[in-house]
Every structure is written in structure tokens, then in C-alpha cells.
Amino acid sequence: MQVSDDYVRDVIHAVNEKGLDALDPKWNGGRPPAISLEVREHICLIAKTVPAEWGITGHSTWSLRTLAEHLITRGVVAAISREHLRRILRNGGVTWQTTTTWKSSTDPHFIAKMQRVLDLYDHPPADGRVICLDEFGPLNLMPRKGKRWRPAGSPARLRATYNRYNGVMHMIAALDLTTGKLYYRIRTRKRWREYLSFLKTLACAGPARSCM
């Protein structure tokens, strides 16, 4: 057990005085936490905000140091170290993550239009087809990073880009939701002429064959 002679001597004396009950471990709760559960939850709520919401300029996000100083200044805690703050956030499910972006439409009728489109998906017309049309481009020749086993600290290298001697390409595509068939055209330019030409192709390929 890798214990000292003094420890063995103390155990023998304890057994002589109290019997075998002296061998049972006497676990205690330890020192009570200096920061209560309510304060910990409050810290996690503050961490999920941004400094600008508290009138703090010069910082777009919280660092552990800035957050700790803010908590002390507002009287949330009397003192807290960065490592203690890190543990509180980790136990509260708050982690450092990359911010994602999103866009919303400025059209005041966007919700009504969206509901009409979704209803068209769920209830397509009996005498027609629902086709989703979109454009994508320009298409560039670019390598896609993958994963593979490599020695630690020695990742595989992949060239970041290629020469574009022949320019770029654009793709206009449509998906027939009834048949699952995909129609597409790849062109060197993406103008209304190419878009209109593709629409005429879709009209000719439709069930009614209404070529324009």
C-alpha cells in the first residue's frame, strides 16, 4: 500500500481502541464551495452575452480575463481566477465556439410567400409538377481538405488552389420534386439569357410539353 511506518502504527492504535470500525473511511464533504450554484448560473448567463450589451467597448467577445474583471466590478463575485472561471463555464455547458452567420429577408411579405412555397411542396398540383430552380457559381477548382492518420504534429499538405487559365464556370440547375430528376446546365456566363434559355428547356421537358 506504500504507506509509512507511522501510518501503520496509527492504524494499529485505532483498531485497538475502536475495533474494526476504525478501518472504515471517514469521508467528509470538504470545504463548501465559495461560489453558490445560483451565482454559477448567473455567470454562465453573462458569458453568453457580448460585452457591448453591458456598455463595454473595445471588446467584441468575452475573454476569461475580461469576463472575470466584469464579474468583480459588478459585484457578482468578490474574486475569481481565470481557471476557476473556465471550470464554471465548462460545468455549465458554455464552451468557446465559432460564431455562425445568418441572413433574413427584408421583404415584408416573406412569411406569406414562404408558407405558400411550403404548402406547394406538401400539396403539389395534380396536373403539374413542382420544380426547384437555383443558380450556383462561379465554380472554382479547389481542393477539399480530408482526414487521414498522420504522425502528431506533421499533417499532410495539400495545395490551396489551382491556376484558372480557362476562367470559371456557372451552373443553373432544377430539381423535379415529383420524379427526383435533376436538370442542369453549365455555362461560362450567368445572365438573364442563360437563365431564360434554361427555363425554356424545363418547359419542353415538362409533362405538358409547353415549349416556348
Results as ranks from 00 to 15, higher is better:
S4D: 12
W27K: 09
G19M: 09
C44D: 04
H59T: 02
A78K: 15
I56Q: 02
D24K: 05
A68F: 04
R31M: 13
V39N: 02
I35E: 00
M1K: 12
V11K: 14
E53I: 05
V11M: 14
D24A: 03
A22V: 01
L23S: 08
A34D: 06
W54Y: 13
V76P: 08
G30R: 03
K26P: 04
R40P: 10
S36A: 11
D21Y: 15
R9G: 00
H13K: 06
E38C: 11
P32F: 12
I43Y: 03
V77T: 00
E41G: 15
H59Y: 09
A22C: 01
L45Y: 07
D10M: 06
V76Q: 03
G75C: 14
G75Y: 14
R65H: 15
A78P: 13
L67F: 09
L37G: 10
D5H: 11
A78Y: 13
L67V: 04
S60L: 02
K48C: 08
W27N: 09
T57D: 01
V39T: 03
I46F: 11
I46K: 06
L37P: 11
V39L: 05
H70G: 00
T57F: 01
W27E: 06
V15K: 14
A14I: 05
L45M: 02
T73F: 00
E41R: 15
T73L: 01
V15Q: 14
P51G: 03
D21T: 15
L67M: 04
A22Y: 01
W62K: 02
S60C: 02
L37F: 12
G58H: 03
K26I: 07
A14T: 04
T49V: 13
D24E: 04
V76Y: 06
D5M: 09
T57L: 00
D6M: 10
L45P: 03
K26E: 07
I72T: 01
G19F: 08
T49K: 15
G55N: 05
G19S: 10
I56L: 07
H59V: 03
H59S: 02
K18Y: 15
D6Q: 13
A68P: 02
V39G: 00
E53R: 08
G58M: 04
Y7K: 12
E41W: 13
V3P: 14
E17Y: 10
